[in-house]
Each structure stands twice: as structure tokens, then as C-alpha cells.
Amino acid sequence: MNNQQPLLSVRNLKTYFSLDEGQVKAVDGVSFDVNPGQVVGIVGESGCGKSVTIKSILRIIQKPGKIVDGQILFRHNGDSMLDLTQLNAQSEQMRQIRGAEIALIPQEPMAAFSPVHTIGNQIEEAILLHQPVSKQQARKIAIERLREVGVPSPERRIDSYSWELSGGLRQRAMIAMALSCNPKLLIADEPTTAIDVTTQAQVLNLLRDLQAQHDAAIIFITHDLGVIAQIADFVVVMYLGRVMETGPVDDIFHNPQHPYTKALLKSIPTVTSESGSRLPTIEGAIPHPFNRPAGCPFYPRCIEMMPGTCNTSTPSLQPVTDTQSASCFLYHKQTDDE
């Protein structure tokens, strides 16, 4: 495994939605790397741009949205880095990458499967699209994948429809479909948000095992800090379309640098916290994307905000320890303003 060179490198990605009313800067200068075999967790509250980031990587951004700047470098064949932003979203090459090399586990498995075809049909179709195998072979691979993700009696289940399956099984089938072509990068968009804790634990364990077996890299998106702590090797903390902090999971949880990460970690109740105690809170709420503050996006809620600095210029993401980077003026003076 070559850990020196990343599998995916997102550089200063900007994806904007131009609406009649103005621009929504859904993703505004996001950078992070994914190394082969690494689980990168992207954590952030609703609307911070997690889904738009991964939709940009897959080049499936819907119409008023557009990648306006930045690079998405993907190690395509061997060592050559391919900039996905330069490809046509509908081109043959992009279609091959999507599905065969980068696969998505979507947020809502109910919506991701067609209700009129059996799950087997849909998994086989995905295999046939990207691999030179016969229909029988495709079916065998599909059954194998279903068995691998822990679907009981896959020979029988392969002919069921998605709505016949329970939430947990449906999510497993979705994972089987994503794995069907042995992708190098698996992207999971809140795969456990819609399911219960016991099922969530099953899915997380499954993803961990599969990751170890296949040595695929995973981008795991969630708003749940507990899930991130359990699954990720490396964490990207996002807020309002920007990366606040990145670092190895242990450092993020035990030595957070950015004021947002620190405050967020303190404000969540845990099963070990004392009953009835008052939690430290982050004042205010996430601004609406049309009312984005100028300067550091977090400054209206930051207790360490420095007037004159934080509310006038935007801090850039810079290394602040050996392993962590943060975009905060407490640590450096670099800005992202032109």
C-alpha cells in the first residue's frame, strides 16, 4: 500500500448554486486527502456542505449547482492523478469511474433502489455495466456480495424487492451493490442516519470488516460524533461550506484545536456524562446560507472571536500541529481572501 500518495485529493473545491435570489456557496474552498485504505470521516451539522462535497467528487451535482473552482485529483491508473473537475460529467470515463472505482452508499436506501426491479436485477445490472462477465456470472457475484454483507440466505433474497426488506437488510443490499465492482473508494453519505442504533452498530461493524478485507478507502459522512469516533481514521470537520479542522481521529477527539470542534465536543451529551448537569453550549444557530457571515464563518458563535480580525477576513486551513490543520486566526494569519 502506498500511503505517501493520496488516492483522492480535493483541493480548494468550490461548488456554488446560482439561484435567482443569489449565490449559495454550498462548498466554499474545501481541501482534504484520502489515502488508500483510509476511512475519512466528514462530520458537520446539517447544511454544511457534506453531501454537496461528495456529489461534486462524483460529478452528480444538479443543475443550478456548479463546481466553480478547485481540483479533485483521483489516482486513476497507477500513479497518474486525474483531475475529475476537468472531465465531462456525462463522459464515458467519468461514468466508468463512478460505480466501478468510486461507489456511493446513499443516505436513503429506500429511494436508491427501484421498487419495480428485484435487488438482484439491480446489482447484476451494476456489475454488467462495469465488468466483462456473463449474466450468470453476474448473478453469482451478486449472491456472493450479498452473502458477504451478511444477508441471510442470499440465494433466496436476491429475488426480493427492496420494499420487502427491513431497513437493516436494505442498507446491507445497498452496500452489496456499492461493493459489486470492487471500488477503490467507497463513499457513504449518512448511511446510518435513518436506522436504529442496533442496526447502525451492525452496519458500522460490517463496514469496518469489509474495509479491512477489501482494503478500499472510505469517505464516511455523518453528523454523529459518536459514529465518527467509531469508524474514522482521519476526520474532516466542516461548518458552513468550509473545513474547520482536519486530523487523525484520536487527536480530533482528545486534542481538538479549532474553537468549533472544541465547543461541539463539549456540547454533546454522552452516556458517561453526569445526569442532570448543564452542558456547555454553543450560542446561536447555524446561519441560513443566504446570510453567511463575512470573515470566519464561525465568528458569530465563537467565544474566542477577535473583533477586527475574525469578522473581516477568512482564515485558511493551515497545519497547526504535527498532524492537525485548522482554519482559525488563533494559530496563524493566513487568509483565503483574494
Partner: peptide, 16 residues
């Protein structure tokens, strides 16, 4: 099954 918000207590998550 509760995911503990601490990467140091990982193995505890025993699924039902």
C-alpha cells in the same frame, strides 16, 4: 450498540 464519542473505546460496540 451506542457509538461512544471516543475513538479509544472502539471494540465495545457489539451489535445485536
Amino acid at each position: 450498540a451506542v457509538p461512544v464519542a471516543d475513538p479509544r473505546v472502539r471494540s465495545k460496540m457489539i451489535p445485536l
